[in-house]
Amino acid sequence: NIFRILGDLSHLASIVILLRTVQKTQRVDGISLKTQILYVLVFCTRYLDLLTFRWKSVYNTLMKMVFIGASVRVIQLIQGCKIQNPVAYKDMIFRDTLQIKYLVGPCAVLALIFNYKFTLLELCWSFSLWLESVAILPQLFMLSRSGKASTLTTHYIFALGLYRALYIPNWIWRYYSEDRLEKLSVFTGLLQTALYSDFFYIYYKKVVKGAGFELP
């Protein structure tokens, strides 16, 4: 359905925006390396089913590969800035202070409690959903601490948040048309969108209505 495709496309757009801008400008200011590392972890644990070769469709398989590849490439590019632009890189690391273990630990526990089957694949899948819902936190934390963000960062976060928001009508659609209700995805998806809601409001006020982007 349309919401799902638009959601996937905005997800792809967010990564492309990030990739292209970092590649072109060699700048990493405002981008959280920790959030990006968490996304690599999210994609690698969620798309483990690629290894079972029970592929759903060409689209599904290709997108999974693209997402894993692009998220790894982002890390490579950020690491490249370490040499190209060491001052900005150090500044980013210095401000990227939210500790990953406080996110990964609880997500692992939640995956052990909430899962469809106690198998490695299903546990990893559940873990990836929980982790994805909070993976943006180091980035948002960094934003709220600095109070300012480049337009790259804001467009990136907006496209990323839009993707999860679009998945909500997709689930409603699928509930009525396919009688499908995937509780774990829906719950973590709602959680993730909720974390973005504050950001969306500020984005709307500042970027859509003009001028710069500043957090209170």
């Binding site: 997800h11 759903k56 999974k64 997402f67 469809y116 998945y167 499908r180």
Partner: peptide
Amino acid sequence: AHTGIEHDEL
């Protein structure tokens, strides 16, 4: 319990 729903979303 396993709901039998395939993980077909990204």
